[in-house]
Each structure stands twice: as C-alpha cells, then as structure tokens.
Nucleic acid binder design. Structure first.
Lengths: 277, 277
DNA sequence: TTGACAAATGACCCGTTAGTCATTAGTATA
DNA sequence: TATACTAATGACTAACGGGTCATTTGTCAA
C-alpha cells in the first residue's frame, strides 16, 4: 500500500470519529506511525487530503450508480437495484459516509463547497434520468418532486447505517423504498418543485465559477491522467476555453468523451456548466 | 435587549455564515460592539453560547409543533398545518436552521450531541403521535416507516429554504407533502422500520447517560425556573432519583407536570429515559 | 567502503484563539 | 466631593496546530 493510501485510510477513521477540523495532522501521522514531515511529502496540505478523500469516494459512488442505471436494461428491476446499491455503498463505506454527513455543509473551503454541490448535482441528474425513463408519461409535472422524495428517502434511511451498527436487511429496505417510490410516481398530482424553480436554482448556483478556476482544474486533471482519447479531448476543450473555434456539436462530443473517465468528472461538470450543456 | 440576547443574535448571524468553529469570540464581540471580557460576563465559554442558542430555538420549535399537533382538533387539517408550520419556522429562523444543519453532526462536545439527539427524538415522538392518530388502522406495521418518510420530506425540502433565498409558496408545499403522506399511509404495504428495530435503536442510544449527569441537569434546571408546580415536581423527581419511594403512576404524573415547561424539556427527556417511560 | 541520492524525521516557526485579570470608566450613595 | 461598587475593557497568556527545513537515516550502485 502506498503512503498516500495509508494516510487516506487512517485519516478517514479519525475524521469519521472526530471530524475534520478536530483532527490534527499530528494525530493522523501518529495513527499512521509516520512523521509529520512524511505527511507533507504525500499531500501539500490538510485540505488537499480531505479533497482527495472526497474525490476518491464520491467519484466511485456516483460512477457506480451512474453505471448501474445505464447498464440495467430491465426497467422493472432498476429502482430496486438503485436503492440496493446506494445503501450497500453507504454500508460498505460507512466511515466515509460519516465524514460526508459531518462535513457536508462546512464552509472552511470554497473549493470544497463547490465540489460537494457538483457531486450532489450529478447524483440528482442520475436520479432524474432514472425517473424520466421509468415514469415518463405518468409523472408529468411532478418528476422533480419525485427526485426530491428519492433523495429524502436516501438521506433519512442512510442515517441508520451511520449511527447504528446493527446489520440491516438491505433487500427488504430496497423493496420497501421501491414500493414507496412507485406509489408516489403513480398517484401524486400536486407538483411543488416546478421546472421554473429548478431553472432558478441552477442559475443561482452556477454564476460564480471563473474562467481561471476552470483552467486550474483542467491543468490539474491533465497532470493526473495518462495519454488517451480523454486527455486529447480535454486538451482540445482547454483550447476551446481560451479561444472558441469549434461548433457546439463538436464541443458536446468532446464533453461526452471525457465524461466517463473518473478523473475527468469534475472538469466535465465545470465545462458543461461553462458551455451551457 | 439584554447583553445576552444581543450576543446570541449577533453570534447566530456569524455562525450561520461561517460556522461555529470558524467564528472567533473576537469576531462576535466586534460584531456586537463590545469587548471580549464582556462576552465572558454573559457566557462562561464559547460552547455555552452555542448550547444556549440550540436550547432557545429547538425548544421553541419543538414546543410549537407539539402544541399545534395537540391543539388541532380537526384531523383533516392536521397534516397540512403540521407541514405548513414546520416550513414556516424554517423560513422565519433560517439563520438558525443553517447553524443546525451545519453543526448537526459536529462531535466537538459530548453534551451537544446528546442534546441534539434528544430534540430529534422529541420531534420524532410528536410525528409518531400524529401518525397514530391520523392513520391508526390503515398503517399497521408501516407507521415507523411513515415517520421516517415525513422526516425525509422535512429534511429534503427544508434545504430549499436554507440554500436559496427565493420566496417559496408555503401553502402549495404543505398541500403537496400532505398528499404524498396520505398516499404513503394508504397504500404502502412493505414495512422496513419494524417495532423491534425501533426498540433496538432506543436501547443503543439510552445506555450511556449516568445518574450524575441527570442530577447535574436537574440542578441546572432548578436554578433556571421560578417557584411553581413544575419546580416542586422536579424536586420530587430528584428525590426519587436518589432513593426510589414513589409508585410508577406517581412518577409518571410528575413527569407529565414538568413536560410542558420549556426549560424542563431536557430534564424531562432524560428522566423519561431513566424511569422507562 | 564510499559517495550520491532519496526518504523520513521532528524541532521549530508563526499565526491564531479561548480564556484571564489588572485596570479603568461609569454610576449611585453618603 | 468622596467612596464604594459594578460594568466593561483589552493587553496578555498559554496552548495548539499547520506547515517548514536542516538534519539524519536508509539504500543502492560503483
């Protein structure tokens, strides 16, 4: 195991227990059996560590779910599988789930907040695509409410995994939530989260990322990934960011190229926002 | 306005914006236009301040809801009024709601965590009583699931008030959630949160409070309240804690006496747990 | 064995902050 | 005015934690 992995693993335990700010670098290094200096050979700062943790787990989590939704061909199984996988992940990585909940609204770092929001948005997009696929005609105006309810179920029931160590019947849970979701999809008539409201939220949250910030993220990502179609696509997108020359379909295609790559999700998200997709 | 109130008000603004740990006492006193020393004349520590804030708002909030549920005589209006009042409170005290969400899982202070849990429990009890009253026959085994769903709705939709400043249509929201809740009550058949599971949770969370801790809270509460039936009842309960002499019905009656008093809610909760009610 | 390079160490620096306390300002009473 | 008392001040302390860097330890090829 690399030093970096060791630190991430041990730090996660401490963060889950005490929270990020209450855990000192000294504690982490003691817990790893290394020196303080060694820590700074692996991470530039304490902030970089938690960002790495968030990145590592959330990309894994969101990609998992996204893949599941896209690869499940039988509609009738989709919702059940979705819930099952969600809670299985929470169960498996309960330390990370704890950190996520504890620090979700922390305002210590601008980059952190924007990142959390974006992962939330990605999850929401995945859920929305699922809802549209399963209930397209039935739900009509209430589809965003259904997304909200699903997120509410996830929030509420995931607390069980985090605060109690009792082993829980995942299959029953997934069945139970599937039934509830189907019922809401079938019978709900009063929409609250309308399309206009969603539009409004989007505008409010997207107007603060600057060109330079996106460039910074792209540079970072380019360093992280190997030569590949994705890397070339990202390079072209960087060009496009500096001086637009390509047509919109071409840009969209490039975005599609980088989207599946785990390391590119963050850059892809920012670029989608920037180019308006 | 007393110095204490001034500090609480101004501190709340800063906490909502920056979080508790990120806000220094110096900042608070600057924002109040007083000196650092003056702060420590009103509060023994920074921790005491946030505990006071939590106490002040959550007792207000939970008593409000509790009163509403008990005083609404027309069943058909109850659920709507419940949701309306909940979100109206969130809307009105959005600064506090922000703090609550930001610090909800903070582990900086043991007392803080236990307190938060207890308020959550009180809320849950109120919701459960409402569910039992409205749907007693229909829901059967699924009543705890319904409580979970209601809490999930509250969690999810309250984020709207906290992160977006858009004015929202409270009436529509309450109607929309009422419909959803009624649907779930009527049609859901698969229970997940069973009675045994609830029992298990209760055991897990109640086995850590010591006799001395409860005594400490009682002493504190006695100092805070005026001479009254409540005070006398609490004194008797303190006696009973030291050496049991009274019958269970008498103890239960004393608990009922102190329950409605805002300052006694915390002591009442601990004593209920201790005496097994 | 030596020398060169990388890996790791931990004492130290520096900024920050909760909390204290000697001192001062303000006020009411004799 | 003098005295006594309370309210308020802010410089100060002690502790802590993030981050640095001169120094040591380990490794491997010549």
């Amino acid at each position: 195991m690399s030093k970096k992995q060791l630190i991430m693993e041990k730090a996660l335990e401490l963060f889950a227990d005490q929270g990020f700010e209450a855990t000192s670098v000294q504690q982490i290094t003691d817990h790893c059996g290394i020196s303080k200096g060694a820590f700074y050979l692996s991470f530039k700062s304490k902030d970089e560590l938690i960002l790495a943790l968030i990145d590592y787990f959330t990309t894994q989590f969101t990609s998992n779910i996204d893949y599941l939704v896209k690869s499940t061909t039988i509609d009738s199984e989709l919702l059940y599988k979705f819930y099952y996988t969600v809670f299985e992940s929470f169960n498996k990585h309960s330390d990370f789930a704890k950190v996520l909940i504890k620090e979700q609204m922390r305002s210590f770092n601008k980059e952190f907040i924007v990142k959390m929001r974006s992962y939330d948005k990605m999850m929401e997009d995945t859920i929305l695509s699922m809802v549209e696929r399963l209930y397209d005609e039935e739900v009509g105006q209430t589809k965003h409410d259904l997304v909200f309810c699903i997120k509410g179920f996830m929030k509420m029931y995931s607390e069980l995994f985090i605060f109690y160590n009792t082993p829980l019947d995942l299959e029953l849970l997934a069945h139970s939530l599937t039934e509830k979701t189907n019922l809401l999809a079938k019978y709900v008539t009063i929409p609250f989260v309308s399309n206009e409201l969603v539009q409004q939220f989007k505008q409010q949250s997207c107007n603060e990322v600057t060109n330079e910030q996106i460039l910074g993220v792209i540079e970072q990502t380019l360093d992280d990934i190997e030569d590949s179609i994705e890397k070339e696509s990202l390079l072209l997108l960087k060009q496009e960011l500096l001086e637009p020359t390509l047509s919109r379909p071409l840009v969209k295609g490039l975005l599609e190229n980088i989207q599946p790559h785990p390391h590119c999700k963050w850059a892809a998200y920012l670029l989608r926002g920037y180019f308006g997709f």
